[in-house]
Amino acid sequence: MNATAWLLAIAQALLYVALAPLLVGWVRKVKARLQNRRGPPLLQAYRDLYKLFGKETRVAHTASPLFRAAPYVVFIATWLAAMAIPLLAVDLPTAAIADIIVVVGLLALARFFLALAGMDVGTAFGGMGASREMLIAALAEPAMLMAVFTLAMTAHSTNLSSVVDAHLAAGLVLRPSYLFALGALLLVALAETGRIPVDNPATHLELTMVHEAMILEYSGRHLALMEWAAQIKLLLYGVLIVNVFLPWGIARELLPADLGLGFAAVVVKLLLLGAVLAVGETVLAKMRLFRVPAFLNLALLLALLGLLGHVILEVGA
């Protein structure tokens, strides 16, 4: 039992790495369709990664060893964070390595190195991207944790497995707090994964970019790792949102049929979420940097209302 659970956990971790480019490809495809374009093929993200891994890696003269280590640290830390989030089944052993606060911490570790790498070469863009990224992260983190606290106070646990389990056990309950927490997490996810309206993943217009500014100096396999880590992060937030708020379908027993159902369910949920993201990116415009705090304040307000709603309306006196 224990060995199978570990094997499954490793398989799930590998699935995160394997599926991440697909979600990005899907979002791009839907977005292109909405804009009356045909768009790149669904598997284009895989081809890009393959091509980048084959290319020569160039590093600036001014770069320190940290610059070369950073892509690996960023990739591994993001991947570790993803491992703790239930994708197919609850109660896998990797879920106990890290609870949701550790997941936030691991993402912060990845961001720390990303920002340092941006500042390493000594160009203006890198510093600009690092400064802005840290600001956005600083404002997003309280909202994120507040939303998570609401979940945790309902489930009396910060382990995501237990949260999902508790949610499944309670059946269908209309909780005002979950509604607000969902809203807050959606906004935070947009900010943290660098999507419109906070950042534009497709732009290389120097003054508006955040994430792209930090990885401007990367090429070859370093760039591939950075891009891949960003894709895993998007998948991570997607799975976090769909599996915590709509956990139905996820396997509670480690049986092949349940796991198959869990896989099908999560894929369908992610496809829907990806489509929603694509619609959102199509109808919204990117904000100025100093509008972002207002955006994230809204996320914090939603999370706060979720918490207050939980205390006032759900528990009673």
């Binding site: 340092l116 510093g127 840290m134 992260a137 404002l139 997003a140 983190e141 994120m144 944790l145 914090l300």
Partner: peptide
């Protein structure tokens, strides 16, 4: 939990602060 959220904000700003220190002093 509101004070915990302040702690989260503190932690994230602390990370920003030390990215600044390390990036400005030791990198570049």
């Amino acid at each position: 939990p509101i004070s915990a959220a302040m702690l989260a904000l503190t932690g994230a700003l602390g990370a920003a602060c030390f990215v600044k220190v390390y990036g400005v002093a030791f990198l570049g």
